[in-house]
Design a protein around this nucleic acid. Sequence first.
DNA 1: CTAGGGTTAG
Length: 769
Amino acid sequence: MLSQKSFMASLPSIAVTCTPKLDPDFRKHPASYSVPEKSPSISYQKNQSHTHLDGNSELRSLDFREALLLIKEGTEIESSYYIPLLQECIEKNSVSKAQIVHDHIMKTGTHEDLFIMTFLINVYAKCGTMDYARKVFDNLPRRNVVSWTTLMTGYVHNSQPELAIQVFQEMLEAGAYPTNYTLGTALNACSSLHSVRLGKQFHAYIIKYQIDFDTSVGNALCSFYSKFCNLGSAIKAFQRISEKNVISWTAVISACGDNGEAARGLKFFTEMLSKDVKPNEFTLTSILSLCCTTLCLGLGAQIHSLSSKLGYESYLPIKNSIMYLYLKCGWVREAQKLFDGMETVSLVTWNAMIAGHAQVMDFVEDDISAYESGCEALNIFLKLNQSRLKPDLFTFSSILTVCSRMVALEQGEQIHAQTIKTGFLTDVVVGTALINMYSKCGSIEKASKAFVEMDTRTMISWTSMITGFSQQGWSQQALQLFEDMRLAGVRPNQITFVGVLSACSQAGMVNEALSYFEMMQKEYKIKPVMDHFACLIDMFVRLGRLKEAFDFIGKMDFEPTEFIWSLLIAGCRSHGNLELGFYAAEQLLKLKPKDAETYVLLLNMYISAGRWKDTSRVRKMMKEEKLGKLQDWSWINIKEKVYSFKPNDKSHFHSADLYTSLENLLQQASSLGYESLETMELTDEDEEENTSSSTAYHSEKLAVAFGLLNTPNATPIRVIKSVFMCRDCHNFTKYISLLTDREIIIRDSKRLHKFVNGRCSCGDFSGLP
DNA sequence: CTAGGGTTAG
């Protein structure tokens, strides 16, 4: 590994020994690489193969050899004869073909030709065989800056940026001058090396020799700064380019996209069009990627038709982006159709499908559809594993997220094993996704182990672990970890503080919560958002300090959301402050909530207070807002099979046993002091089944009972529920955990609940209806 | 030299 120091030491010497002028010949370099317009006769095969030889490689390789036979071995020939053949090697990614040509070149004496040999280096590099590329380079009769640069580029593309920098040094020592291309490649090496310092040195050098106006230098600078999240410098570098080409525009557009400024990227795109710069396939994919982050389906469709017009219709990255855009916008069927119709797919295609379904899980209205999307993602992952392609770090981070959202521990553990085998666990994003998988499945110890075993951690890794501790009710550990994070010099963000404040809230640590709230604003200059206030209000409500909670709402400099009022209402209900509760309910109704759960909360409050006028008013509003009934479903995953339950579900095998065991549990719990609260009407009125039965069971009770009957003793039970848990079920589940000595993990639409020994990790969240 | 796919939230 090359140390940065050695390069820094050598920089001044370039400054002294190099003339400010660039190598006068470098500008000829790109032109001489293109195929001559009048190609020699043997090049006809290339075109032919494009039209109808697809899938007939045997015939093709015969032609390839015949082409070489046309030239007598030993006769010196022009390098341009080899170019089409070598280009074919690149297209086919064929090292063996390259070796045949290479052999021929040696025998005909063409190896004296520096141009053809440099091209050969390029071929081996593109095929991923840097050892061969290096050998060709080492045996070159002479070297020029182009051959040095080609070798460097090869190392950068093959993830060996340190060797690229080393070659740069060798080049300087050999007395060659860097060109704009060399410097561009060097900058790319710095990006891959994650070395801002080294890159800035190159920038200084570039400024010194006043070549920042150069197109390829400027392009490289733009993407270099973009990769280090310095969008301002990236844009500056772009603006200094005197002759901006498509690549410059594409670079600045993707810089905006990569740094979360999609709208700005789109502005550059319109500016580019107004200057009559024609977008190429790279530009179009960048724009489509912006559409994905901004969910601009309409623009995406326009770009789609534009790309067809420009002839990039069948270009795979564009197809992948369109498919991903469809998924992200919820057009699952259209995406699936596109996927099914693709004759060639890449790993990116699979990954986009999996990641897309993971996103669909996150935004679909009901958890039932979310669960189905998750199953679909797992199926796609299974199919990918059966294909010739192998999952990579992108696949693993997405699929682990799917497992965490599905609370699918068994699948998650298998994937964990796979990440170890394939070596992808060393990737920090995969590692972070693993932490989340374990913590969302209620295995906080394993999450913590995964965290400890990481080589490097990002801010998100720390945040995930802090949030994980907090969600499991391990407030002390969460706060301790936050202090460790600060000591490690990692800067927390908004989301980190959500975790910290929620930890304080659960532990009822009012003073700590308020001081962290202040620290966030004063020390880290982070503006509090709704989630931070929600944590604090939740804290006061839990403590029964409703007045303070209410006063805090007044301190916010924005309008309270549905969630804030819901917290207060649920709190007022459990602490018996009806007056404040009704007031909050009026405020909430003014907002015309869009969330069916909120209405059900209100409905139940009014029903239990006997306020029939208000009850019918709320029902009317629900109809006006076109909100359907809540569907109470629960799922449990046992031995990779999924069982789903509706309330009072009797459709399962041995369901009589299920109800008997629930009755038993109910009796035992009652003897320990459990009192059934009035059961919340989750599914709203008109359900005769509910009203006729004296003991109505919400779906999670059935799923838990099913789990108890069908898993060995002491096995944790993991259930997902489509709507929020009601207080009665929450309370009853505490007793079940105590009576059966089991861990019961229930993830509802709002939170994670882990019941152990009669207690829940949510610390009796105040938002329980 | 430029592109498509990944991790954190009440």
